[in-house]
Amino acid sequence: MSRALLLASLMLLTWACTSPPSADKKEKSGKTVICLLPKKKGVPYFTSCSVGAEAASKDLGDVELRYDGPTDGSAEKAAEMIEKWTAKGVDVIAVSCNDPGALASAMRAARAKGVKVVTWDADADADTREFFVNQATPEQIGFGLVDTMAKDLGDASGEVAIVTASLTAANQNEWIKHMKIRMAKYPNLRLVAVKPSNEDQKLAFDTTRDLMGAYPNLRGVFAISSVAFPGAAEAIKQAGKSGKVLVTGLATPNDMKAFVKDGTVTSVLLWKTEDLGYLTVEVGRALAKGELKAGATEFESRRLGKVKIAGDNVLLGDPMVFTKDNIDQFDF
């Protein structure tokens, strides 16, 4: 009996798989389909970017936005997403690149099939995409973090530590590399430890506490993942060291408002995430419609006005520093 069932099922399956493929037919609506791939879905930073992207697709009217990505930030799963969208025959894929090496082949394959590929938030190899919507390079971020810390410390001296995401996080490793380069400029600033927090706020909290105990002279902590930042700030606050041990990092202003107001955190570094999402969708659409071509030096955005293009980088502008004085003006 089961053998007969097996045979019947196999035949059904073959029939199902060989039935006329309709993959090549474009989406019915005639809209430009733009896929936005975050490094990690489900974190406030990318959720906030997607809000901006959603707004852009509404404003433009002829764009259909897809927002999806790995919930664990794995590069392999990000590559699978690109392959999937390519197979579906979408128009544009916008990639926030987790790991240039791991995504390169999928991105090249997508381009070979006529999909327009751009990067946003984090760049990939130049030959795997047409434009990079650049809000900040790793160099800008790394240098910016160190400069901010040096400025907040006043005399730019003392022991500092880094609490990073995980030791394999490609972006954070890139930032750390540039942070170390920049620290050469401040000879009195000494990096004593780099510790992982594995995207776990509690671990970031515990680790920061241990760091303060182990290095009593610690003066500053760079908490360079969105989850590590509030964890580290909380540890410093509870130890009663607000203002004595400084902490800085990248985070959306809403998540850090309370810490900035009570003085635990002096400066938060970030860009306008919604604008980044908005601009990415606009660039993607313009590229698909042929309105934006290689060699352009300027791009007209609905929300941001004229935006500069340097080489193949569409520039969002410099990162912002949120402090006690201006953080209330922002809501994202």
């Binding site: 974190v43 594995n198 995207e199 776990d200 706020q201 909290f205």
Partner: peptide, 16 residues
């Protein structure tokens, strides 16, 4: 007893 030690609740809590 451990969530309130932290200031925010996020989706990574408890992993591992």
């Amino acid at each position: 007893v451990s969530v309130p030690q932290l200031s925010v609740v996020e989706s990574g809590f408890g992993s591992g």
